[in-house]
Amino acid sequence: MSTFGEVVLRSLCVLIAFLVLPLLVGQTEHKLMAHMQGRLGPMYAGGFHGWAQLVADGVKFTQKEDIVPLAADKPVFRLAPALGIVSYLLALAVIPFGPHLVAAGITGSLLWVLAVGAIGTVGTLMAGWSSGNKYALIGGLRSAAQLVSYEVPLILAAASFAMAAGSFSLVSIAHAWTPWWLLWQLPGAIVFLVAGTAELQRPPFDMPVADSELVMGPWTEYTGLRFALFLLAEYAGIVVVSLVLAVLYLGGWTGPFDHQIGPFWVLLKGFFFAVIILWMRMSWPRLREDQLQRVAWLGLVPLALLQIVLTAAGVVLTT
């Protein structure tokens, strides 16, 4: 019974983190983007500097009518948002916030994050195809092409970290971390950050949802709560990528007083990467489809392979 209670408690913690952290990132994006564009951003909801804007947005989304188009493939259309959400929820469950503070301690957790992240992409494709809308279909095609391309450098970069630590477990990787990884694994971290952003279809890699040409890509036909779930999945994706990168490249909970405030360090480092992901969105224009593929195959894949060679050399020389 106690183990059952523990499982429930751990799941609840993951769920709360899953609901709170994306909102935090979303609010940061609102305010950061506003100030980077010389605006103030939301100022009213909740009183102090519009802190409850996203809560208000969520309430608004739940009130909207849930429309399923007549031409849509209805069961697939209804199921698609759930896949994206579930995949990031499962990914968040294995991220360590301390040496023993993991919701689900599995040994291949890095592989797990990459594997369940792949399920979410199927959700995007399902949404794009089942909407019965040509904009959504083109968006789905573009996201499929993009996700397949960027999966390669993402996995190669993750493999480099796993090689350096000699383990697939995020906890072991964070344990194996030393400050000189900052230099040694820098190309891998850059590849992971860029490919992760592209996997999330965040600007500047938002060709699949390019609003000026495809309305909203695979999400064109979605309304209300289902649309909100896609948005939540996107921000949860930022949280997962940032936290994983914080654990892989910045050593997770490692830092001053890490016995007392280890989880704080993970969150702070994750927040650092989340801000960089947001910052990239605000600064750079969208990549065209051919440029997108070019960056993946001619830029990131060679860089990731170089990183693997570098890591292998480092591992062989030091052990």
Binding site: L114, A115, T121, V122, L125, A144, L147, V148, E151
Partner: peptide, 10 residues
């Protein structure tokens, strides 16, 4: 799931 099915769907 992540690569082959995505390719098939594509």
């Amino acid at each position: 799931v992540g690569a082959i099915v995505v390719l098939v769907l594509f």
